[in-house]
Structure formats: structure tokens, C-alpha cells
């Protein structure tokens, strides 16, 4: 069973849940930028949530399969056709052999996930099939004509036929936990972070999102020795405009991190598109520190 890429759109990659636990070897986690949508797409076709799928950026993806398959699309909602007829997202979608599945441009959001029953079965690299675009690990980004093997299903057919999807908001509100380096910023800088808004610039990829908004002024000006960082970190370079790290972020960073996104909001950030506005608010730090 094979998936053939007819057109990858602006950027399409294979993604699963990434390579956790290897940061000490300089290997980042990578994996789906919006893991919630990846998991949902896999559940809809009866795959383990960790199966590999295609992450399409700003739609434009066109594929076909050499046998009949069951697929599902989640994430950024885009117009979809199967063999030229309109088809639905967020639901299992049977395709016959040779039928073309075509994604238009999403109306909202950035990344759409295409899962196929059996999962994309390219070879694992360090335990994952994900493309790490910064470290060049895993399969290369998909080009026209790329052929990807599809695995054999390991689980029974799914018992669902549709998964309702909350609409994407035009302005995104994100909870952050201050730190680890909030003391490197002035009181005004800290206040500015949550005063917002920050606009997503066109420098927005799987590594991170460069934001444009109120300047985060530093109190401590000395250089920071590189330190390990995490997905969702808001790193602040000398110009005071934060960079929000996504799945392919560098393992270490040399600029102070003012705050880190709450885990539950990462999937929202991964769907932010250029021009969209983000608002940050601090979740009660004491509450979060006392978890457990």
C-alpha cells in the first residue's frame, strides 16, 4: 500500500509524536506541531495515536493511494475534494484506489493532518518517523511524486463517524507560566508581555514563530550561556520581540526565556498564521508550581 504525493502544497512533512528524551544528545523532540490534531486524526481511522501522518501547511496537498484506504483530515479546516467531489474533515473518509484527495487553502488555522488507516510506514530514525526540519532528521519534506509506504492496520475499525471541531478563533489567547528567566526583564517588560497583542509575522515555521508587539525590555543585559529549552518557550532576542518555539526548536537557546506556554495551549499556537494576533496571560504561577 502506497501514498503518492501529487502536490505537497507549501510544505508537507511526515509527523508522529516525535523523539522525546534525546535532548541531552542534541536531538530535539520534533513531531506534529499540533499533536492534538494528529492524535484525533489517528483515532478517527483506528490507528494508535502515535502513528505517523502527513502534516500539510496551508493546504494545497494532493495525494492518491494505490489501494482502497480509510483516511481522516483534522486541524486547519480547508475545502476538501475526493475524486472531485466535496468531502468532509474530522470524519473517517473512505477512498477508492487511484482517487485523488485534494486540499484547498484553509479558511483558518495553518496545519492540516492527513492520517491513513495503518499509518505512514517510512523507516524510523531514532524511534520516530518525524521530519525534524531544523536538524534534518527523518524523511525529507514531501515533494511531488514522493511515495510513502502505508502500514497494515493493527486495531479494529473505529467506532466513531465524526469528531466535532471547535472553530478556530480569529484572536488566540494563550496561557503562559512565567520563567525561567523572567527576572532578566524589567517590570515594564513583564507587564508588556500580557498587555499585548503580538502579531504572528511571516517568519513562522516548525521551528518557531517570530512575533511582533510590545518590546520586552531587559533588566539584565549580560550574555546568557546557552541553556536547554522546551517547546512553547518564549525566547527573547536583543530586539525585545519574542520567538515562540514550536516542535523543531533548537535544543538549547542563548537568549533568555521570559515564559513558557501552558501545555494545553501548544496546539492553538501551532495553528497561528501570519497576521493573526496572540494575547498572552499568566496562569497563576503558584498554582502551577504546586501541581503534584
Amino acid at each position: 500500500m502506497t501514498l503518492e504525493v501529487l502536490s505537497p502544497g507549501p510544505l508537507a512533512t511526515v509527523q508522529d509524536l516525535g523523539r522525546p528524551g534525546l535532548a541531552h544528545l542534541g536531538v530535539g523532540e520534533s513531531g506534529a506541531a499540533d499533536r492534538r490534531s494528529l492524535r484525533l486524526a489517528n483515532r478517527l481511522v483506528g490507528n494508535p495515536e502515535s502513528a505517523a501522518a502527513v502534516e500539510a501547511t496551508l493546504g494545497g496537498l494532493a495525494v492518491r493511494f494505490d489501494t482502497a484506504v480509510l483516511v481522516a483530515l483534522t486541524g486547519a479546516p480547508c475545502p476538501v475534494t475526493a475524486a472531485g467531489r466535496p468531502a468532509a474533515m474530522y470524519a473517517p473518509l473512505p477512498l477508492r484506489a487511484g482517487e485523488t484527495l485534494q486540499l484547498g487553502m484553509p479558511d483558518a488555522g495553518l496545519r492540516t493532518y492527513l492520517a491513513v488507516r495503518g499509518g505512514i510506514d517510512v523507516p524510523c530514525v531514532l524511534g520516530s518517523r518525524s521530519t525534524d526540519t531544523m536538524a534534518s532528521l527523518g524523511p525529507p519534506p514531501l515533494g511531488p511524486g514522493a511515495r510513502l509506504p502505508v502500514g497494515a492496520p493493527t486495531r479494529p475499525h473505529p467506532g466513531v463517524d465524526v469528531a466535532p471541531q471547535a472553530p478556530y478563533a480569529s484572536e488566540i489567547r494563550l496561557d503562559v507560566v512565567l520563567g525561567p528567566r523572567e527576572d532578566w526583564f524589567t517590570a515594564e517588560g513583564l507587564a508588556a508581555l500580557c498587555h499585548g497583542p503580538y502579531t504572528v509575522t511571516d517568519k513562522c515555521d516548525r521551528v518557531g514563530i517570530r512575533l511582533d508587539g510590545p518590546v520586552l525590555t531587559r533588566r539584565i543585559e549580560r550574555e546568557l550561556k546557552p541553556e536547554a529549552t522546551v517547546t512553547g518557550a518564549l525566547q527573547v532576542p536583543p530586539n525585545g520581540q519574542p520567538i515562540l518555539f514550536l516542535a523543531d526548536h533548537p535544543v538549547t537557546g542563548g537568549y533568555p526565556v521570559i515564559a513558557v506556554l501552558a501545555e494545553d495551549d501548544l496546539h492553538l499556537a501551532a495553528q497561528a498564521r501570519p497576521g493573526q494576533r496572540l494575547w498572552f496571560r499568566t496562569a497563576g504561577r503558584r498554582r502551577l508550581r504546586n501541581v503534584g
Binding site: A23, H24, V230, T252
Partner: peptide, 20 residues
Amino acid sequence: TELVPAARTLLVRFDRTVTG
């Protein structure tokens, strides 16, 4: 769950259902 050393720091990742 994970330790990541760097020049002056050690990142300690944890399961927040167990510790904090």
C-alpha cells in the same frame, strides 16, 4: 523523566502528576 545539561544549567523534566 529527563535531564538535559548545558553550560551553567540542568533542565529537569518531570511528570507533573508525580512531582512539582
